[in-house]
Design a protein around this nucleic acid. Structure first.
Lengths: 144, 144
DNA sequence: ACTCATTGTAATTCATGGTATTACAATGAG
DNA sequence: CTCATTGTAATACCATGAATTACAATGAGT
């Protein structure tokens, strides 16, 4: 069990925009070819990133641009933009109310897990697009 | 997108065993009625917890017992026992090798995310069954 | 104004994986 | 030997993510 493509795809989209803006026109088709995924998924994801204020998309003419510096865009923002679930885990909704464990599990375990999720978000907040761009550039240099 | 029932179910199973061992026979049917889930799921989960050395299950006669003190069983062990995926996120397996972003995204983003996952596991390691039992007992007292 | 590549979005299909359910041989205390 | 229970396989069902098709709306360029 793991999270879907969504966040990684969004990250890759933003990285491509950051890296290729001004060089290529970053259309959904162009971005889709880097990720190797359907262009419609790209458009949906771009829509979520636009709603989050991270990018602007030129309807009609095509292409997307970042609205912030890569150093100011964190994984936390990206994660929140594309993942809407409140909780990290799916806790059984109808446990037995006759059982002292069953009737308290949601609250008790939910509290613990929400702390863990907040820590995860804090970790995400420390990672910026710029960090990833640097890592990619380093990896590219090591290819030669 | 969120994790499945598995880990929360496993936690609830262990809590019930801890709380009811010696009072009721903790069969899969008994446990299933607390979680309100199918007994076969309980048996599968108990099998995973047994493989992880957390419980012993009496085949034939029925019932399960903890093999460690509740204070020595952490959410990390439980999580690892029932979730086998290596990575937290699903990163596109076939990105475009022609694209400098595509050909590095798995490694670069994967590295960052594995750090986050390890932090999450460290958080899980700090939460024991005993903590949850205490919270449940407190919640029960507040019911009156 | 017209063109045309592109976006935004809906609808449909497909595949995957989690959960429910049924069934039954194997187990082991009484 | 009995019988409740476990272990496990097989199957069905359903939710959801992703792929795909289709098309109206957009808007710069001419």
């Amino acid at each position: 069990m793991q999270f879907s493509f969504r966040m990684p795809v969004a990250v890759q989209i933003l990285l491509c925009i950051a890296k290729f803006d001004g060089v290529f026109k970053t259309t959904s088709t162009f971005l889709a070819s880097s990720v190797n995924i359907n262009p419609v998924i790209i458009r949906k994801t771009l829509g979520q990133l636009k709603a989050a204020g991270l990018v602007e998309v030129a309807a009609g003419v095509g292409g997307a641009k970042l609205l912030k510096e890569p150093g100011a865009i964190t994984l936390q923002e990206i994660f929140n933009a594309v993942e809407e679930d409140e909780d990290l885990f799916h806790i059984q909704e109808n446990p037995n109310p006759q059982c002292p464990v069953g009737r308290n599990i949601q609250q008790v375990l939910g509290n613990k897990l929400s702390v863990v999720k907040n820590h995860m978000l804090e970790d995400f907040a420390k990672i910026t697009l710029d960090d990833l761009l640097n890592d990619i550039n380093t990896a590219e240099q090591n290819r030669q």
